[in-house]
């Protein structure tokens, strides 16, 4: 481990003399800086998108676990009897983990946003709600509806879980799309850095020839180019990540009602993930330039 750390540090500190053998080329270097900054910036957003849609899918999934509700309407005098029958039906239905009667207070809380507080619930023909939790396998909604229709005609099964499933799937797909984008951005960075490195190697053919003539090994020559491009990519990516994080921080917040957009951002330890982008792009540049340099050098005498 120490050897690896020493090697990385040695690479970063570098050999001042070795650095000088490659002329300080202006244009490709600035393009490399700009490209890696732009790529890192985009990567921050792709990462934010992936994490946010992951959170969204998780939230909706956990709500799914609550399963369904049964709404029971009956004349007040029959309410207790019908409720008991419905509970009996639910408790004997395979796939139903628990069935729980909502208390009057809970029902009042549900209606409060619409009718305001202090609603005289007892005086109104408000249906009774039963919260159903499914087991992992789930229950047969159609079968349950048939049984309820026969035994408790006033009961309506609201299988609200069902319409959320496509949403969860969509969020999952969005997250996958985010990750694919991150991979594509990484691959595109590798491609662009390879092109820049190849351009630099071609422009410095005479330098390479001279170095080779005076006894420089391929490793020495490659190192001079690889180091330069890796450091430029690293610096560009760091700037891009900082800009990306600032942009994410400045995203307008829509307040407490957690909509999709406010979710776009990082939570908790996820803030640490974007910090990995610069080292990863640096590693990509190191690898891409190394391959390009070795390939070019092997073609020379």
């Amino acid at each position: 481990m120490n050897a690896v750390v020493a090697k990385v540090l040695g690479f970063l500190v570098g050999d001042a003399q070795a650095d000088r053998v490659v002329p300080p080329a202006g244009f490709t270097v600035r393009l490399t800086l700009f490209t890696s900054a732009a790529m890192a910036f985009l990567m921050v957003f792709a990462l934010a998108l992936s994490l946010a849609s992951g959170r969204l899918a998780a939230t909706w999934s956990s709500e799914l676990d609550r399963g369904a509700t049964l709404r029971l309407s009956a004349p007040p005098e029959q309410m207790a009897a019908q409720t008991a029958v419905a509970m009996a039906v639910l408790q004997t239905t395979p796939g139903v983990a628990t069935a729980r009667l909502l208390s009057a207070d809970e029902q009042r809380a549900l209606l409060a946003p619409w009718f305001g507080p202090d609603l005289p619930l007892e005086d109104l023909p408000v249906p009774q709600l039963i919260e159903i939790t499914e087991t992992g396998a789930g229950f047969d909604a159609a079968g349950l509806r048939l049984r309820l229709a026969a035994e408790v005609p006033g009961a309506v099964l609201d299988d609200h879980a069902r319409w959320r499933k496509p949403l969860v799937r969509a969020a999952g797909a969005l997250r996958a799309l985010g990750w694919v984008s991150i991979l594509l951005i990484g691959a595109a960075s590798a491609a662009m850095i390879t092109l820049a490195a190849n351009a630099a190697l071609a422009a410095n053919a005479q330098v390479i020839e001279v170095l080779r003539l005076v006894g420089a090994t391929d490793g020495y020559i490659a190192q001079a180019f690889v180091r330069r491009f890796t450091l430029r990519a690293l610096a560009g990516a760091a700037a891009g990540v900082v800009a990306g994080l600032i942009a994410v921080l400045l995203l307008p917040s829509a307040g407490a009602e957690a909509t999709f957009l406010t979710g776009l951002g990082f939570r908790g330890w996820h803030w640490l993930l974007p910090l990995l982008i610069a080292p990863i792009l640096g590693a990509v540049a190191y690898w891409a330039t190394g391959v390009a340099a070795r390939k070019t050098l092997e073609g020379l005498t």
């Binding site: 002329p23 300080p24 005479q206 001279v210 090994t217 391929d218 050098l297 092997e298």
Partner: peptide, 24 residues
């Protein structure tokens, strides 16, 4: 290729068209 590079350290070559690193 590295063997060749190392042997060049024992052979000094003066080319017809002398090439240098023009920025140094």
């Amino acid at each position: 290729r590295d063997d060749i590079a190392l042997s060049r350290r024992r052979i000094g070559v003066v080319h017809q068209d002398c090439r240098f690193l023009d920025h140094l």
